[in-house]
Simulated assay, not measured.
Amino acid sequence: MALFIDTFVNKIDRKGRVSVPAPFRAALSGQAFHGIVALPSFKYKAVQCAGIDWMEGIKARLSTNSDLFSEEHDDLTMALFSSAKQLAFDGEGRVQLPEDLAKEANIGEVAAFVGRGEHFEIWEPQALERYKIEARKRALEKGRTLRSARPDGQP
Rank of each mutant, 00 (worst) to 15 (best):
E71P: 02
E92Q: 15
A111T: 06
E109A: 15
D74L: 02
Q86V: 00
G93T: 10
T77G: 01
E92M: 07
A105N: 12
K85F: 01
G117W: 15
K103N: 13
E72R: 14
S83C: 05
R94F: 08
T77N: 08
G93S: 06
E71K: 13
A111E: 06
D90C: 03
L76E: 03
E104T: 07
G115Y: 07
R116P: 00
F113S: 09
E71V: 04
Q96K: 09
G108E: 15
A111K: 09
A112E: 06
V95D: 10
T77I: 03
S83K: 15
D100M: 08
P98F: 08
A88E: 14
F81R: 04
P98T: 08
E72W: 00
A84V: 02
A111N: 08
E109G: 12
D90G: 04
D90E: 10
I107F: 10
D100N: 13
D100Q: 12
L87R: 11
F81Q: 05
T77S: 12
Q86S: 12
E104K: 15
R94I: 04
E92I: 03
V114K: 11
D90Y: 06
S83A: 15
L87D: 05
G93H: 08
D75C: 03
E72S: 05
V114G: 01
L68Y: 10
R94M: 06
V110F: 09
E92C: 00
G91D: 14
L101S: 08
A102W: 12
E104F: 15
H73V: 00
V95L: 12
K85E: 13
E92K: 14
A102H: 08
R116F: 11
E109F: 08
L87N: 06
D90L: 05
A112P: 07
E104D: 08
A79L: 14
K85L: 03
K85Y: 03
A111V: 12
L76C: 00
E72I: 01
Q86E: 15
N106I: 00
L68V: 07
Q96I: 11
D74Y: 06
P98R: 09
F69M: 09
L68S: 05
G108R: 14
S70M: 04
S70F: 01
